[in-house]
């Protein structure tokens, strides 16, 4: 899938204060490892998402570095405790400098 990477994110629309919610994210990306060779024997340059972060109202929630052994279309599932309404901002950083982002609002009652 050599199309522009497109994130999919699932966050509950609402939650109770102090509730632990589960966030799921998936992004389409080929995660080319840099170890493979093309038909002419030339190395296919590495192109992976190397960093993923999630912030809530500007505060870090989760982040990780990705390495070449991670397979295509990386999927993350993690949980967070929410105490106030706000916005999750999710960011994927590509080797070529591209940044893919997604924002999800949540209402906390």
């Amino acid at each position: 899938m050599a199309t522009t990477p497109k994130p999919r994110v699932r966050v509950p629309k609402s939650a109770a204060a102090g509730e632990v919610i589960v966030l799921k994210t998936l992004i389409s990306h080929e995660m080319e490892s840099g170890q493979r060779k093309d038909k002419d024997g030339k190395t296919i340059p590495r192109k992976i998402i190397n960093k993923f972060t999630c912030e809530f109202n500007g505060q870090p929630v989760f982040s990780c570095d990705l390495d070449p052994a991670i397979s295509a279309n990386p999927y993350f599932e993690f949980s967070a405790k929410v105490t106030e309404s706000g916005t999750f901002k999710l960011t994927w950083v590509d080797d070529d400098g591209s940044v893919y982002t997604d924002e999800q609002k949540i209402e906390v009652a």
Partner: peptide, 12 residues
């Protein structure tokens, strides 16, 4: 259906 990476192709 969210975790299913095949759904990326369906969306495309």
């Amino acid at each position: 259906s969210f975790a299913n990476p095949g759904m990326l192709a369906v969306e495309r």
